[in-house]
């Protein structure tokens, strides 16, 4: 298949072409996407990027489907329990868009090396440990592959992007002349080019108890403190090898509080003034599907921006507020 859109594709993608233009659609058409982790959040991301009309999607996940997660993942069916999740999502994923080549890979993500990753345009990772994330990021930077990572914890969710040296185009509405008219005829759309230099994730995700250099920590007075909650959850996974569990809620919250103290020490944050209270840690348990849907929408939109070079992408952390439902960008490590 060439890069030119067929009549069928033009028809199928008509509405989104109206939004982001045919050039963007052609770039999507050429994109090969790797999705690591296809649990509730991964399934939402998969759905959105399949519908956007990419060339291929590879789903890398070595886990088997558990009984609890099956009803929460719309790509699975009742017979999926006990089988490889990457293979079990294929059927329904393909039904979302027959034009995209979809494949499953049931290997364990840490076993993959540079020769595997370099085949892709962009890598979308969910549910992996921070050390693996940093390893993949190194590869992505040397091979000029875009990377976005995200996770949802209960009502809380976030994503972190490394699109390397990223150029983008944005349509800005400008006024023609000085006088405003009310019929809109005084406005014109101008294509504006922009560039963002993403910092490597080693400088963004700096956790306690690692060999990472704390020198890269830049003090930011107005830091969105949900960023520290994000780091605490990452460190929790490092420390316990699992995510917080509702059955051990009390202990897990205690552990998160301890981790928070370590992080605040590292980042020199005054705990007494912090907004990261127990209230936040209370609501980070379980998989909340509508949060996965919203965050999956945000992450997939970033994938589309990264691939199409259209519109301003998030630079570089996205934080979904579990209490207010605000979704904000936070620039870290620059």
């Amino acid at each position: 298949m060439g890069e030119k859109l067929s009549a069928v594709e033009a028809e199928l993608y008509d509405r989104q072409i109206r939004l982001w233009g045919i050039e963007s659609q052609e770039k999507l058409r050429a994109a090969d996407v790797l999705l690591i982790g296809v649990r509730a959040l991964g399934a939402e991301i998969a759905k959105n990027i399949l519908l956007s009309g990419i060339n291929s999607l590879t789903i890398l996940d070595d886990r088997t489907v558990t009984e609890e997660e099956q009803p929460r993942n719309f790509l699975l069916s009742k017979t999926s329990v006990g089988k490889k999740i990457a293979e079990e999502v294929l059927l329904k994923a393909q039904m979302l868009n027959p034009l995209v080549k979809i494949s499953a890979d049931t290997d364990c993500p840490p076993s993959k090396d540079v020769s595997y990753f370099k085949k892709f345009t962009i890598i979308v990772a969910t549910g992996i440990k921070p050390d693996l994330l940093l390893k993949i990021d190194k590869i992505c930077r040397s091979e000029k592959i875009k990377l976005i990572f995200g996770d949802a914890f209960g009502m809380f969710g976030y994503s972190v992007s490394d699109f390397g040296k990223h150029t983008y185009y944005e349509d800005q509405i400008k006024l023609i002349g000085k006088k405003r008219k009310h019929d809109g005829s005084d406005k014109t759309s101008v294509k504006v080019k922009g560039e963002i230099n993403y910092p490597e994730l080693n400088k963004v995700i700096i956790l306690p108890n690692t060999k990472q250099s704390a020198d890269s920590i830049k003090k930011s007075k107005r830091r969105n403190e949900l960023f520290y909650a994000m780091l605490a959850l990452m460190e929790f996974k490092n420390k316990h090898g699992r995510i917080p569990n509702i059955e051990t809620k009390k202990d897990d919250i205690e552990s998160l509080e301890e981790i928070k103290k370590e992080i605040f020490e590292l980042y020199q944050v005054d705990d007494s003034k912090s907004k990261i209270t127990k209230e936040i840690f209370e609501v980070i348990f379980g998989e909340v599907i509508p949060v996965c849907a919203a965050l999956g929408g945000v992450i997939a939109q970033e994938v589309i921006k990264a691939v199409s070079n259209k519109e301003v992408p998030i630079n570089n952390v996205f934080l979904f507020d579990p209490i207010t439902y605000d979704g904000k960008e936070e620039t870290v490590g620059v």
């Binding site: 989104q16 959105n48 909340v288 509508p290 849907a293 919203a294 929408g297 945000v298 997939a300 439902y325």
Partner: peptide, 23 residues
Amino acid sequence: SIAGNIIPAIATANAMIAGLVVL
């Protein structure tokens, strides 16, 4: 676009809003 009064809708924005509606 003009004749059909097309308001383009995309899956990602719909997913975000649908999620918030449920919340």
